[in-house]
Design a binder for these strands. Structure first.
Length: 947
RNA sequence: GCGGGGGUAGCCGAGCUGGACAAAGGCGCAGGACUUAAGAUCCUGUUCCGUAGGGAUACGUGGGUUCGAAUCCCUCCCCCCGCACCA
């Protein structure tokens, strides 16, 4: 037979599914299932790692259809936020790395001729978004996803803006939209906020804002403060001196309240973006301060200002306070000074920690660090910090704070210092960074940032209640979600730039992109209908009516000038599909998207519309390594069909790992899977034109195969239903293939073709969620209908036959035993004698098979005393083979025990055994020269082989 | 440090509500069948010992509970993730 052209098959069925619109979901039908997966962000192509989540989602959708549910599986595109905008800006400016990257991206989809033209169109963000949205739709179609595309939308469409506005009005009414200060990364050159995609290498090493604490030290001979910045304000008790870089420039600035601060010139500039009133007075050289003294703020000691080369004017304030007992830099800098100038300053130890005498000194000696130019000082600092933070305790030097772990007291010290007006806040970037254009990145503080306040108790209570009522798979994430709800507090929800919906309560702000992706699943239920309405009609009362059931259609109809029947129709659609029965996504979303998803539903929607279940699959790696564009090891989803074949990719996703495990994409494994898949295809092909076996002609082996198959089918449906797709897949593919292989050995290739025909249709149906294309192809050779919209067959339980399976297992075990003997004895069999256990052995066997405890063994032994093999030995042997349980386990059947007419089975299979061993087989003959007969126990005949 | 997840054969990876476990399945490797050959496919083997279906040793380490432990409890070692506003 001609090999199947899988590529052709994929194309054919994808085209027909689309033409016949078989996945368009319309309301109606008793059972509905609404599944959602995250909408992709359209800044670039998706890769096979992303595909795992969508593929598993599709497998679930397809399985639910088999179960008879009316399934809605929709898709949309996420465009909101800064990345797409940043990309467009970069391309408009002609930045080479970005242009090169997008050349590569577009080359995935387009011929070289068009690449340049398309990239140049990317100066406009909407072109980027539309291009990739279209390509990703194509990718998804090519993956065979059973999506209802009519409901597609993107997050910058006017109707979506209206919907998000409505959401924020609902939250505002609940009083959870608030204002406050907030630090952001900011470009001085661009005069705007910058995100990961604006920053040079921002995708490789993220830049975050770090809160430093500034501490004021009054100069003895001036009306000014030297202001030091620190990440460890709790060490203020151990300060011995200040550090200044003599080569740096410092300035005196007047801050709000009329104080004069001295900080580095760089820090003064940053302060200008972080505080409201800053006035620069005069500039001074660093060395000007050397030898001066300052007062320590809390204990009023006089300490010197010294010189240190490690102080960087562009980090913090350019002034550092020295805690040589606990800071390796300070310790080493003092050592340098002592050697050079004979300065003697004794460290003040303020933290007790097991394993250290004087931590900074200890670690420097341990690591062999000798001067402040040593790069390992950074590592030493990290190590000490981690140790002290978690294990260290402030000692008696620290007054009221003594005796408490740093981790528990750090913030209290900081707050106390702030309260005493000693400390203030200064933000710094987590590393030095520049924009892709080369402009310096600093931290600016927005004075009136908008937040969502997740702290109200009523809200958290609702969130917990919602989670309690949900299913999570893997289950462990449920407890985790409760924790996340507890620590969730304030979250910025609007920003100054990016694409998205205008913030309804203040001009100039855009709703931030995670905050606009929380309840969008509701949009899927009505998106295709909203398209028919003018945008003006999508008012607050419109959404109130549709989603919350407020008001009535007639009144609304007049208000927004839309026919009431249309309004009712829209509402019906929402009422039918909502809630979201399953959200399938990945664990990294737990502490952001998913918790917002749940909390916003809890706050806005009626409890009957709360989400039902969340399933999460881990990531995909490739050849043991994380996939990332910087490593260059990503495979675009668009290439899957060409490189591997879609069904094989889907199969890999389904059976390579459970949801809870990372999938490792290995070429070697895809190759192995391809061979398996080909075998499967050949099996299908070989049976479509063959006549199935009639019940009247069933042999024992036929019944065995059918029994195995339907038992596996039954198990697999249960596992599928519990999202254990991997187990179901392995069972229905690998295990069934093995059964069939065994069957063929036992019977013949011709008969195998016929028996496979018996199970073919049911097999195709259960495999169709995972490998829909091949199943659709074969199905159409048998039926003029789509397998994708079939329902599971009535389970043919009548074929599940314990006795038949037991007999076969018995035979397999016997053959194994005989082979074992032949191997050990190294003989060629001339004749094989088999002796089955006598009746009295069966009696004992029955008597003890389900003993609740060992005591009854004595009872059983009374049944008979035998002088060949003592009953005691016999019972022991039986016990061993039976693996009797101390307590009868209700969950697992003891399948080691079963009733069997051994002699009958052996007689029936004598011919098979004869073939198998190429010699005569004698059953229960009196001839027993070696006395083997006595070794027979039930289900394990004695064997005697004659050469 | 706290919280969560792990450590199973040459590799990947099941099992882990205690008993069917020398341990599923796959890969790799070795031998065989088929083939002019290669590939594909199929069979057999893949801890050690054993001329009768057996025995010994094994699931990070060291203990414990039990008739019985990869599975339960405790010690220790090692790896991964999170630890707070950050997308």
């Amino acid at each position: 037979m001609a090999a199947m052209n899988f590529k052709e098959i994929e194309d054919k069925w994808q085209r027909r599914w689309e033409e016949r619109k078989i996945f368009d979901a319309d309301i109606g039908g008793v059972k509905k299932f609404f599944l959602s997966v995250p909408y992709p962000y359209t800044s670039g192509p998706l890769h096979i790692g992303h595909g795992r989540t969508y593929t598993l989602g599709d497998i679930i959708a397809r399985f639910k259809r088999l179960q008879g549910y009316n399934v809605l599986f929709p898709m949309a595109f996420h465009v909101t936020g800064t990345p797409i905008l940043a990309i467009a800006d970069s391309i408009a400016k002609g930045e080479e790395t970005v242009v090169a990257r997008y050349n590569d991206y577009i080359a995935i989809y387009e011929g070289a001729a068009k690449v340049k033209e398309i990239v140049s169109s990317f100066g406009k963000p909407e072109n980027v978004a539309h291009f990739f949205a279209d390509r990703i739709s194509d990718d998804f179609k090519r993956m065979g996803y059973s999506i209802d595309w009519r409901r597609k939308f993107n997050t910058t469409e006017p109707m979506y803006n209206k919907f998000i506005e409505w959401q924020f009005k609902k939250l505002y009414d609940k009083g959870v939209i608030t204002k406050g200060k907030y630090p952001i990364t900011y470009s001085i050159d661009d005069k705007s906020a910058v995100g990961e995609d604006d920053i040079e290498d921002g995708d490789i090493t993220k830049v975050t804002t770090i809160e430093h604490t500034t501490i004021k030290f009054k100069l003895s001979d001036m009306d000014s403060y030297l202001v030091a910045a620190t990440l460890r304000p709790e060490t203020i008790f151990g300060v011995t001196n200040l550090w200044i870089n003599p080569a740096a420039r410092y300035v005196k600035v007047k801050v709000g309240g009329g104080e004069f601060w001295i900080v580095s010139r760089e820090a003064a500039e940053k302060l200008g973006y972080q505080r409201e009133e800053i006035e620069t007075m005069e500039e001074l050289a660093g060395e000007y301060f050397l030898g001066k003294h300052v007062k320590t703020p809390i204990d009023d000691r006089e300490v010197p200002v010294l010189s240190a080369s490690f102080v960087d004017a562009d980090v913090g304030t350019g002034v550092v306070y020295s805690v040589p007992a606990h800071a390796p830099y300070d310790y080493i800098a003092l050592e340098d000074l002592r050697r050079a100038e004979g300065v003697e300053i004794a460290p003040i130890r303020i933290i007790d920690i097991e394993g250290y005498e004087m931590p900074a000194k200890d670690i420097c000696e341990q690591m062999g660090i000798e001067n402040q130019a040593d790069e390992r000082l950074e590592e030493a600092t990290q190590r000490i910090y981690k140790d002290e933070f978690y294990r260290g305790v402030l000692n008696e030097v620290c007054g009221d704070f003594a005796g408490v772990k740093i981790a528990a007291i750090k913030d209290a010290v900081k707050d106390w210092l702030k309260g005493e007006k000693i400390a203030d806040v200064f933000y710094e970037t987590s590393r030095k960074a520049v924009t892709r254009g080369g402009g310096k990145v600093i931290v600016a503080v927005l004075q009136d940032q908008w937040f969502i306040d997740y702290t109200p108790k009523w809200w958290k209570d609702l969130g917990h209640k919602l989670v309690d009522g949900m299913t999570f798979y893997p289950d462990k994430y449920k407890a985790y979600m409760h924790d996340i709800i507890d620590w969730l507090a304030f979250r910025p929800c609007a920003r100054k730039r990016g694409l998205g919906t205008e913030f309804p309560f203040e001009k100039g702000w855009i709703i931030e992109s995670l905050s606009d992706s929380t309840i969008y699943m509701a949009m899927y239920t009505i998106a295709h209908l909203l398209r028919q309405l003018p945008v003006d009609a999508l008012t607050e009362s419109f959404f109130d009516y549709v989603f919350l059931g407020l008001g009535d259609a007639e009144a609304l109809s007049k208000a927004i000038n839309v026919d009431a029947t249309i309004l009712k129709r829209i509402k019906d659609e929402y009422e039918y599909w909502y809630p979201n029965d399953l959200r399938h996504t990945a664990p990294p979303h737990l502490s952001n998207h998913l918790v917002f998803f749940l909390m916003h539903h809890a706050a806005i929607f009626h409890a009957s519309k709360w989400p039902k279940a969340i399933t999460l699959n881990e990531l995909m790696i490739r050849e043991g390594r994380k996939m990332s564009k910087s490593k260059g090891n990503v495979i675009p989803l668009a290439d899957v069909s060409e490189l591997y074949g879609v069904d094989i990719y889907r199969l890999y996703c389904a059976i390579n790992a459970d949801f809870a495990s990372v999938v490792n994409w290995r070429e070697q494994d895809t190759e192995a899977l391809r061979k398996r898949f080909n075998t499967l295809a050949e099996l299908f092909e070989g049976s479509v034109d063959v006549e199935a076996l009639k019940e009247a002609e069933f042999t024992h082996t036929d019944r065995w195969l059918l029994s195995k198959f339907y038992r596996r089918l039954q198990e697999s449906v249960e596992r599928f239903d519990a999202f254990r797709i991997r187990e179901a897949g392995i069972n229905m593919l690998f295990n069934v293939l093995n059964d069939i292989r065994y069957y063929e050995q036992r019977e013949s290739a011709d008969r195998r073709k016929r028996i496979v025909r018996n199970i073919l249709e049911d097999w195709l149906i259960i495999l169709s969620p995972i490998v829909p294309h091949i199943c659709e192809e074969v199905w159409h050779k048998l039926h003029d209908s789509f397998i994708s919209v079939q329902t599971l067959p009535e389970l043919k339980v009548e074929f599940i036959d314990d006795r038949v399976e037991h007999e076969e297992a018995y035979l397999v075990a016997l053959i194994g035993d005989i082979k074992e003997i032949l191997k050990i004895a190294r003989i060629k069999p001339g004749k094989i004698y088999l002796y089955t256990a006598e009746n009295w052995k069966w009696e004992i066997f029955r008597a003890i098979k389900d003993l609740p405890d060992r005591d009854k063994i004595k009872e059983a032994m009374k049944i008979r005393k035998d002088n060949l093999l003592s009953t005691v030995d016999f019972v022991k042997q039986v016990m061993k083979n039976l693996s009797l349980k101390k307590k009868a386990l209700p969950k697992k059947e003891n399948t080691l025990y079963f009733e069997l007419d051994e002699a009958e089975v052996l007689a029936r299979e004598r011919e098979y055994l004869t073939d198998e061993f190429g010699c005569e087989i004698q059953i229960n003959e009196a001839y027993d020269p070696k006395g083997k007969k006595r070794f027979a126990i039930p289900l394990k005949p004695a064997i005697f082989v004659v050469e």
